[in-house]
């Protein structure tokens, strides 16, 4: 739906009062090239990116006496996969919730595509093109897989109460949406389950369904909260592949992850949080060696699973996947 996407971008662009330093959103083609090569960006906290899609400033969230999130400055590059990592309790998910409008900060602001969105509701953040998934997947259990994806379609006149009573007003849109939904389901290999209740899917399939749903909204940026958590190892590889595909189609991806190998494997840029602060930023190869990162993880009793690299070996994965399919 290229035309719909343009509408989307125009809308968010128009919402900027008087524009800003980034100007109008860059066409996705250039974004793709610029975003993937971040080697010339200095690996330091709060560094400016060549083409930032998301900029956060002085974001703080306190629970009682504890400061869960305290981020001074962060830019997220357009068209790249940025990973947000850190030990348990580092405030990653809280930061994520703040950015997506699911929690309110004590102070701070951030802008998306140049437009301030820090006080917008979760729904408006999503409509601006920043769509998230959840750590504990939220499959809408008693809706079918297809309905789950159809629900995500934007600008459906049938979703207005009075119009919805008159099918001719929305039948055409619905048919188009259905076609698109089926394409997406096919891509995530969920097309055979289209009429099953989403509640009957496995953990990994639910993650895929959530991603499919997010994709259906034509987002500019996808925020994935621990996409690998609770997923059968056999599915991890294909999930990672899907995430890379999203980037290759021009979307920006920010994902929270625990699993270092997944991070190393696919991300273009890594942001490390500890105790609510960002302690390091950089390309995946170098940031892991950063002393601050080592300290952060050791300080957290080294509870992070540094994992079994074998799991990412394509051969092992292929075997696991085959086994999964047999069951």
């Amino acid at each position: 739906m290229p035309d719909e996407k343009t509408v989307n971008e125009n809308e968010t662009g128009a919402a900027v009062p008087g524009g800003d330093s980034q100007g109008a959103p860059a066409p996705s083609e250039t974004a793709k090239r610029a975003g993937r090569d971040l080697s010339h960006v200095a690996p330091e906290v709060g560094v400016a990116k060549p083409d930032a899609i998301l900029t956060a400033r002085g974001v703080q969230r306190r629970f009682g006496g504890m400061t869960a999130v305290d981020v001074d400055y962060l830019e997220v590059e357009r068209g790249a996969i940025t990973a947000l990592i850190g030990p348990n309790g580092a405030g990653k998910t809280t930061f994520f919730n703040l950015l997506t409008g699911f929690d309110r900060p004590n102070q701070g602001e951030w802008s998306f595509e140049g437009a301030p969105i820090s006080h917008k509701s979760a729904a408006r953040v999503a409509r601006a093109g920043m769509v998230r998934t959840f750590q504990l997947t939220k499959a809408l259990s008693r809706l079918t897989v297809l309905e789950n994806v159809l629900l995500a379609a934007t600008k459906n006149p049938g979703e207005r109460m009075f119009a919805s009573m008159f099918q001719p007003l929305w039948a055409a849109t619905e048919a188009r949406n259905k076609e698109k939904a089926l394409e997406i389901l096919e891509r995530f290999r969920l097309d055979k389950m289209r009429d099953e209740y989403a509640g009957s899917l496995s953990g990994g399939q639910r993650k895929l369904l959530e991603m499919a749903r997010a994709l259906m909204t034509d987002p500019t940026m996808i925020m994935l909260d621990e996409p690998m958590a609770g997923v059968n190892p056999a599915l991890v590889q294909s999930l990672l592949g899907h995430i890379q595909d999203l980037r290759d189609e021009g979307m920006s991806v920010l994902f929270v992850e625990h699993d270092m190998h997944a991070v190393r494997h696919i991300s273009d840029w890594v942001v490390v949080m500890a105790e609510g602060r960002i302690v390091a930023e950089g390309p995946p190869g170098s940031v892991m060696k950063d002393q601050a990162v080592v300290d952060a993880y050791l300080g957290a009793h080294h509870d992070t699973d540094l994992g079994d690299d074998a799991l990412l070996d394509p051969e092992v994965l292929a075997r696991l996947e085959a086994e999964e399919e047999k069951r």
Partner: peptide
């Protein structure tokens, strides 16, 4: 089923 999921898809 889950209002947060629906909210995350941009519905009011």
């Amino acid at each position: 089923e889950d209002e947060d999921a629906v909210r995350a898809l941009g519905k009011n």
